[in-house]
């Protein structure tokens, strides 16, 4: 593969770059969704694709989310590699039936006779001052389903590499993009076609005092919190979960076994959120190494509020730091 110069791109531009790359590389890749063609998607993730690859492969669908998910399944069974876009993750609930009852289990229930290599992607989470239903964090709904992969990128480079991996994966992937990070910062991304590993957590900062675990949009606040902790002399290890299902418990357990302290940060409501699953795994496999109880910092068990109060719902750096301080109070650094 020719080495391309790394350009500074945003997360949404990285998504676009990955789609361009994979559509050029593999003629079986098709993109479908609402307004993905001439309009380039409401967040512009699919800009330029239809011009380049034509309306046959970049498909403006009628306004029907259930249909979009079901069509992707039908296409995938025929050897196409559909990448379906849902405009906002809050509108994915009508896809849940198709994904849980069909995409996730076609391979198993036919013993491999029929498979479903599809990606369904959507912007996820709040913080963009959008109307009601446009700011939901839905990852736990999908992560509960056996047979699915759930992937949530947190940086432009990881978005590029993980989306390539998701498209190339032979099984269905739910790919949830943190909407408020779409244009939050730029990062050098080489359009080199190299996929990032799925099913692997990324230890993006090594530390010895405590483990901060998160994914998607919350990684931004977690990184800031880790910087502030470092300034105070606390050496936090930071892990981006990236693939929520299947969960790379091994990396998480190894880290917490080393640090003995853990704070898990997520945006979705607390009860039954994916932080709970991670906490349970850590309790089962790293309990004897813990100096303090595992802490969760989550959204509340409330309805995601409208724009004027959404910042109170989404965990901020202050809430993360106070959870860390509590952990350190229980088990001070030695």
């Amino acid at each position: 593969m020719a080495r391309r110069k790394a350009a500074e791109v945003t997360l949404v531009e990285a998504i676009n770059l990955a789609l361009h790359h994979e559509m050029a590389r593999d003629e079986n890749v098709v993109v479908l969704g609402e307004d993905v063609g001439a309009n380039g998607g409401v967040f512009r993730a699919t800009v330029g694709l239809q011009e380049k690859f034509g309306p046959g492969r970049v498909i403006d669908t009628p306004l029907a989310e259930l249909l979009i998910s079901a069509m992707a399944i039908g296409m995938a069974t025929q050897g196409l590699k559909p990448v379906a876009e849902i405009q906002f993750s809050g509108f994915m609930y009508s896809c849940l039936d198709q994904l849980a009852n069909h995409a996730a289990r076609l391979r198993h229930r036919t013993h491999g006779r029929i498979t479903c290599p599809m990606v369904i992607r959507a912007p996820n989470g709040g913080g963009i001052h959008a109307p009601e239903h446009h700011s939901e964090s839905v990852e736990a709904f999908f992560a509960h389903v056996p047979g699915l992969r759930v992937v949530v990128p947190s940086t432009p480079a990881r978005a590029y590499g993980l989306l390539l991996a998701a498209i190339r994966d032979p099984d269905p992937v739910v790919f949830l993009e943190p909407a408020r990070c779409y244009r939050l910062f730029r990062e050098a991304v080489a359009d080199d076609g190299i996929a990032a590993p799925l099913d692997t957590c990324f230890v993006e900062r090594e530390g010895t005092d405590l483990t901060l675990i998160s994914w998607g949009g919350m990684m931004h606040e977690v990184r800031i919190a880790a910087d502030q902790l470092a300034a105070d002399g606390v050496d936090a290890e930071v892990i981006d979960v990236a693939t929520l299902k299947p969960l790379d418990t091994q990396t998480l357990v190894a880290s917490v076994a080393k640090t003995g302290r853990c704070v898990i940060v997520e945006e979705s409501p607390r009860a039954g959120g994916w932080a709970s699953e991670i906490a349970a795994e850590l309790a089962e496999h790293a309990m004897m190494n813990l100096f303090a109880p595992i802490a969760r910092v989550s959204g509340y068990d409330t309805i995601m509020p409208l724009a004027r109060t959404e910042a109170r719902f989404i965990p901020d750096v202050g809430r993360i730091l106070s959870a860390v301080r509590k952990t350190l109070e229980i088990a001070p650094l030695g």
Binding site: V30, G56, R57, I59, A64, L66, L67, A70, M71, A72, I73, G74, M75, A76, T77, Q78, G79, L80, P82, D97, Q98, N101, H102, L106, R109, T110, R113, I114
Partner: peptide, 26 residues
Amino acid sequence: FHDFPFAVPVASQVPQALGVAYAMQL
């Protein structure tokens, strides 16, 4: 061999047929 397994969730197979047909047309 390429036919779908029986669908039990009523009607869920109907929109899937469009994806299959789309692949044939493409």
